Amino acid sequence: GKKITDLRVIDLKSELKRRNLDITGVKTVLISRLKQAIEEEGGDPDNIEL
């Protein structure tokens, strides 16, 4: 897996889109939004599978 902070903006957006989440904002905003979603799913933001 990869750390969420290692993802490119395009990867962050595709992961957010897959979860029907907002894809607007700067990279730090996208990271925190995706991180929260992954944690709510019970996942580990430091080890995500794309």
Rank of each mutant, 00 (worst) to 15 (best):
D46M: 14
K3G: 08
D46A: 11
D44N: 12
K13C: 09
Q36V: 09
S14K: 08
P45I: 10
L16W: 00
I31Q: 13
K17I: 13
R33P: 02
K35P: 01
S14T: 13
I23N: 02
G42A: 07
D46C: 10
P45S: 10
G43S: 08
R8L: 11
L21C: 05
K2I: 15
G1A: 12
D46V: 07
E49H: 12
D22C: 03
L12V: 07
L30S: 03
D44S: 09
K3Q: 07
E15M: 14
L21V: 06
K17E: 14
E39V: 13
E49K: 09
T24Y: 15
T24F: 08
I23D: 05
L7D: 02
P45A: 08
K13Y: 09
T5E: 14
K13E: 09
I23A: 15
I48V: 13
I38C: 10
L50N: 12
N47K: 12
S14W: 11
L7S: 01
N20R: 11
I31K: 05
K17F: 08
K35N: 07
I31H: 07
G43V: 06
K27C: 02
L34M: 05
G43N: 09
L16A: 01
G42Y: 03
V29Q: 14
D22P: 10
T5M: 13
L30N: 04
L7T: 03
D22Q: 04
G42M: 08
L16H: 04
G1I: 15
N20S: 12
I31V: 12
K13L: 10
E41H: 03
L34P: 04
E40H: 15
T28M: 15
E41Q: 07
E40Y: 06
K3Y: 02
V29H: 07
R33G: 03
Q36E: 08
D11V: 01
T5R: 10
D11Y: 02
E49L: 11
I38T: 01
I4H: 04
L50R: 10
G42D: 10
K3S: 09
V9M: 15
E15Y: 02
L16K: 00
I23E: 11
E15Q: 11
K2F: 06
T28F: 06
G1W: 01
D6S: 11
K13W: 08
S32I: 04
L12E: 03
V9R: 08
T28S: 15
V29W: 01
I10V: 14
K3N: 04
V9F: 03
T5Q: 13
E49T: 12
I23W: 09
L30T: 03
D46Y: 12
D6G: 07
P45C: 11
K2A: 07
V26R: 13
E39K: 10
D6W: 04
R33V: 01
L7N: 10
L21I: 08
K13M: 08
K27E: 12
N20W: 06
V26I: 13
D22E: 07
K35Y: 04
G42S: 07
N47P: 03
D6R: 07
S32V: 06
D44P: 04
L30M: 12
L30H: 04
E41W: 00
K35G: 06
T28P: 15
P45F: 08
E40G: 14
G42N: 11
D11E: 04
E15G: 00
L30E: 04
N47G: 06
R18S: 13
P45K: 06
I48R: 05
L16S: 01
K13I: 15
V26H: 15
D46N: 15
L16P: 01
D6F: 04
Q36H: 09
L34D: 04
P45H: 05
K2S: 08
E49A: 09
K27H: 06
D6P: 03
K2V: 08
I38D: 07
D44K: 03
L7C: 11
Q36Y: 04
I31E: 13
L21H: 08
I4D: 05
V29D: 14
V29F: 05
V26K: 08
L50G: 10
D44T: 09
E15R: 00
V29P: 03
L34K: 03
I48E: 08
R33D: 01
L34V: 05
E39F: 06
R33K: 09
P45G: 07
K13V: 13
I48Y: 14
I48A: 03
R8M: 12
R33A: 05
E40I: 06
L7I: 04
L21G: 04
L7Y: 02
L30W: 03
I23V: 13
V9E: 10
I48Q: 14
E39T: 11
G43I: 05
L21W: 03
I48N: 05
V26W: 06
N20F: 08
D11A: 02
L34T: 02
I38R: 04
K3P: 07
I23Q: 14
R33S: 04
D11K: 00
V26E: 11
K3D: 10
Q36C: 09
Q36F: 13
E15S: 06
R19D: 02
D44Q: 07
E39Q: 02
E49V: 13
K3V: 06
V29A: 13
N47D: 09
N20Y: 05
L21T: 02
I4P: 01
G43L: 12
R33C: 00
V26P: 14
N20C: 05
S32A: 14
I38M: 09
D11I: 00
V29G: 08
R8H: 07
V9A: 06
K17M: 13
D22M: 06
N47H: 10
I48F: 06
G43R: 09
L7K: 05
K35I: 06
K13P: 00
I31N: 04
I23S: 14
E40S: 14
P45R: 04
T24L: 06
K2N: 07
Q36R: 12
I38L: 14
L12T: 00
K3T: 06
L50F: 10
D44A: 06
T24D: 15
V29C: 13
I10Y: 07
I31R: 11
G25D: 02
T28A: 13
E39Y: 07
G43D: 08
E40K: 11
N47W: 06
V26T: 14
D44E: 05
T24N: 05
G43A: 10
E49P: 10
D11W: 00
L34W: 00
I10Q: 06
V26M: 12
I31C: 11
K17G: 14
K2W: 07
D44C: 09
R19M: 03
D6M: 08
R19K: 07
L34Q: 00
S32R: 13
D46T: 12
E40L: 13
E39M: 10
E49F: 13
E15H: 04
L16D: 05
I23F: 15
G43T: 07
K3R: 09
E39D: 10
G42V: 04
I23R: 09
